[in-house]
Design a protein around this nucleic acid. Structure first.
Lengths: 246, 246
DNA sequence: TGTCTTTCTCAGGGAATTCACAGAATCGGG
DNA sequence: CCCGATTCTGTGAATTCCCTGAGAAAGACA
């Protein structure tokens, strides 16, 4: 039941013994597993990865993760088989499933019901991190009842209700705008490059123009900063950052 | 998991000694037992499971559950035999029977007279959780803090009588509409994705189109929001949430 | 069994959102 | 003060997401 402040200046999840939360990533696509691992390490978590079911079980046995990210499609055995065995050894561990968009309905629905969750490919890293954070919090492995509300100055963003307000007035954001603002607010007073933002907020296979970020920053400014003292700032050549006005 | 607040933010059932309620799940279909266990743990309860009658008795003796979920069809012995023996050792424990749709009338009817209850397969998790909650509440095993009436604004839903009203006027809902509204009302001001809703409210083997959720939201709106200030809101790209008007 | 209710699929329409493109504006270095 | 690089933003098209009517299928009840 501990909260500490990470290098990023954010409250962090910690296990009761004050060691970092441990996450096991299971995916046979190496680049994807790598991408996830790096994103999770960036969050301050300890990560191991496995490329198949057998390896997953072996690693889990020894690593004792607090949460597992599991691709449903594995080369050697079905994700479900892995899940079954995993549960036999680490009964409580929450699982975040990765799945293709179309295979969702048939098999995942139901699996996730117990408090597990899933994300469809292609996903954004922000989404994965947010979901995983929720899972871990609910599982009680890292017993931190952190607030679901992000606050920067007079700007508030509620991750549960998806409500955003500044100085009392409610603000309507689209899904992408919301994700972008959430990412900014999770890293207040810190410059985020367009590349970082693209990597985090957009799906990992997004192939479009990099200036969508500029575009969405522009949208956000119209809604968030309109008139008031601006909180979203440009660092030319570096990126963007959010901080309380004055 | 020692908080009095559930993941949904509702008051939780706790035993007199303030430990979580203990539930024993007895079912020979492992995936189903797993599904149930996870859902119940998510509710903040402590769960053990057994795959046959003998195991059930062994576990019950040692685990001393406050309630039992019992599949009527077990490989080694009849659910009824298990029940008989169970009662000899834990005389008061309430039981929630799981049964196939057609085997209901003949035998279960009499069994449930004693304050027990039953659910037919396939069931939805919301239904099982609700029934179990009712059983435990009535049994008096747990100090009950939660009301059986959910209230959001001027909207009221009674989980016992299944009555729903808004602003005094009674509203008739079908079974599915009721479950959906209950799930929404148990998570007020919180965005629920269509996937989450599907997992919880629909039967675990539902394989249909995800847009049934949209459809039933539409039905609910006609009955709940008709004319008045809307309480059911769409968060495009994220899900739905219910909150008091204004 | 026949009737009424409920559940669910399908498909069309409408609206909100996402994104590319391109020209305007701004910045910083010389 | 000028120029290239970078950022901002208006326009519009494509897409995605959501709502809902109509009717088929399944179930409940008498």
């Amino acid at each position: 039941m501990t909260t500490t402040t990470s290098p990023q200046g954010r409250t962090e999840l910690l296990r009761p013994d004050r060691t970092p939360v441990r996450v096991l990533v299971v995916d046979d696509e190496a680049p994807l597993a790598e991408l996830l691992s790096m994103a999770l390490r960036y969050e301050g978590w300890e990560v191991r990865s496995a490329g198949d079911g057998a390896g997953a079980l072996r690693t889990a046995r020894e690593f004792r993760p607090d949460a597992v990210i599991l691709d449903v499609m594995l080369p050697d055995m079905d994700g479900l088989a892995v899940l079954g065995r995993l549960r036999r050894e680490l009964s409580e561990v929450p699982v975040l499933f990765l799945t293709a968009r179309d295979s969702v309905e048939d098999r995942i629905a139901g699996l996730t019901a117990g408090g597990d969750d899933y994300v469809t490919k292609p996903f954004s890293l922000e989404e994965v991190v947010a979901r995983l954070r929720g899972l871990i919090r609910r599982s009680g492995a890292a017993a931190v009842r952190s607030e679901s509300t992000l606050v920067v100055g007079d700007l508030m963003l509620d991750e549960d209700s998806h409500e955003v307000s500044r100085g009392g007035g409610n603000i309507h954001l689209t899904a992408t705008e919301f994700e972008l603002l959430r990412f900014l607010m999770r890293n207040p007073r810190r410059v985020l490059s367009k590349a970082q933002i693209l990597d985090r907020v957009w799906n990992y296979d997004f192939g479009g123009q990099a200036n969508v970020v500029e575009l969405y920053i522009s949208y956000l400014r119209k809604k968030i900063d309109a008139g008031r003292t601006p909180m979203i700032h440009t660092r030319r050549g570096a990126g963007y950052l959010i901080k309380p006005g004055e």
